[in-house]
């Protein structure tokens, strides 16, 4: 048969030469390779102290943003839940009461907002779908490993951006 590529090799069992049968040159060669690796730069990243360089478009843990006054931007329109290919997002909507204007920006807000991190594929479609620029995938945080499955369902307590206490910005 015609060879499809020029990489074909004929393998035939040849009689070993004396130096091959002694194995010592081969052992020396192997030792040379390992000692070369001994002095090589290490591939390890010391994780808690150093982190791997992330891509600029890295998509990590979700966050629900607040506006400049500290009110939640989310209006519980449900577009993110519709856009989500993994169906990881659920929410229930509620109406804003009098006196809660400083908490919620619009008249409708999300009473609960849950993202199941076990389902989530971190595709970022929720981010694209959101008309109010409320949900974002952060580029510096991960969804960490946990012991229980329940703990992977992130509620508003863990998703909403914490209030800025100081107005330095």
């Amino acid at each position: 048969m015609e060879p499809l590529s020029n990489r074909r090799k004929n393998v035939a069992q040849k009689e070993m030469t004396l130096s091959e049968r002694m194995y010592l040159p081969a052992i020396a060669q192997g030792l040379g390779i390992t000692i070369k690796h001994f002095f090589k730069k290490k591939a390890t990243i010391n994780y808690p102290e150093e982190t791997r360089q992330r891509s600029d478009v890295w998509r990590g843990l979700h966050v629900l943003k607040r506006d400049e006054n500290g009110a939640e931007r989310c209006t519980a329109c449900g577009l993110c839940a519709v856009a989500c290919p993994a169906e990881a997002i659920t929410m229930t909507a509620g109406e804003r009461k009098k006196g809660e204007e400083h908490l919620y920006r619009e008249e409708k807000y999300a009473v609960t907002y849950e993202v199941n991190m076990l389902r989530c594929i971190f595709c970022g479609l929720c981010e694209e779908a959101c008309p109010k620029a409320a949900i974002f995938l952060q580029d510096d945080k991960l969804a960490p490993a946990r012991y229980e499955r329940d703990e992977f369902i992130y509620g508003k307590d863990r998703l909403v951006e914490p209030l800025k206490t100081t107005e330095t910005k």
Binding site: H37, F38, K40, A43, T44, N46
Partner: peptide
């Protein structure tokens, strides 16, 4: 440590 260095790791630290 030597095992780690030969395998391009840093070993116990």
């Amino acid at each position: 440590k030597i095992a780690a260095f030969i395998q391009d790791r840093v070993g116990p630290n």
